Simulated scan of single mutants.
Amino acid sequence: MMTFKANTIFLIFVSTIIIACNSSKKEPIDSSKTDWIIANLLEKEPDQISIQGNPKLVNAPLGKAVCFDGIYDALFLDQMPLKDANSFTVEMIFKPSEVEAPFEQRIVHIGEVSKDRMLLEIRAKNGQWYFDGFVASNENKKALIDEKLTHPLGKWYHVALVVTPNSIITFVNGKKEIEAPFLFKPINTGKTSLGVRLNKKSWFKGSIYRVKISKKVVLPNHFIHF
């Protein structure tokens, strides 16, 4: 009887160790996507970014966001999340400011300063803004922009730029705005900036909650929750 109890205790002990070891294993990193809660970058992971100016944490409907002043505030990341992507989707939840908003605003810039790159941009005028999704790849350039597709400043929005090997598409709040043919080759070099172009021109005034980059085509029914 004592031997049986000892064996049972030993098995329980070994099982406990195995469970503890398994539970301590980290989940594998999904290299097919990059998902930034911008407040977390600023607050919890400052070693990942270079901060310019004084971007501030603010409250947003989904949690904390980061507010940029449109003059000096920006975040720079030594990361290239689009490397080797034949298709990609960049989503952003943001709020453009309605107060003294600059006309040309670059919000997300990934890639090189003036060669292969993509940007999420807006134009602000008369209390309204319209979207500009820009891609440059292998000497091809395309800006999807229509000044008639306006939206009120001062509200939260979801925007997306979807790039396939043969086309680019823009969405605002899940609704397709513009689609155009485009011969795309992967953007493999460069860095990332939030709140301004990588060359520190065309500053964004407003708040960003989240930016998600997927190395695939994402359809509106799978966009991040907003």
Rank of each mutant, 00 (worst) to 15 (best):
V172T: 11
L120R: 00
E91L: 06
V163S: 01
V108C: 07
E179H: 10
V58D: 04
I110E: 03
L77H: 07
K33C: 15
A20N: 07
F76Y: 14
L41D: 06
F88N: 00
W203F: 15
P46M: 07
F184I: 00
E98N: 13
S97C: 05
F131G: 00
H109R: 00
E112I: 02
F68V: 00
N221G: 06
A6R: 09
P96I: 00
K191I: 09
I71L: 14
K26V: 03
K191V: 12
F94N: 02
C67K: 14
L120N: 02
A101I: 03
I18Y: 10
V196A: 15
I110W: 00
L42P: 00
K115T: 04
I71G: 04
I224T: 06
Y72T: 12
M1S: 11
T34I: 03
P81E: 06
F76W: 08
S31Q: 15
S137H: 01
N188W: 11
M92K: 08
F94R: 02
G206L: 03
I38R: 02
R106V: 11
N40R: 10
L219F: 15
W129A: 00
A180T: 13
A65M: 09
E91R: 05
R123F: 12
E179P: 01
R106S: 15
I145A: 09
C21E: 14
L149T: 09
S50L: 14
L11S: 14
W203A: 09
F68M: 06
N138R: 13
I107E: 01
L77T: 01
D35N: 13
L41S: 04
I187Q: 02
V217F: 08
I213T: 08
T189W: 12
F223A: 12
K115C: 08
P96W: 00
I224G: 08
K212M: 09
E179M: 14
T150S: 11
V196N: 11
F226I: 12
I38Q: 01
G70P: 06
I17S: 08
L11F: 15
F94A: 01
S207M: 01
I107N: 01
G111L: 04
V163L: 05
I145N: 06
E177R: 10
Y209P: 04
L149P: 05
R106W: 15
I145R: 14
F88Y: 11
N54D: 12
I71Q: 11
D35P: 07
M118A: 03
F184L: 07
I107L: 08
I208N: 01
T8W: 15
D146F: 10
S97E: 07
C67E: 10
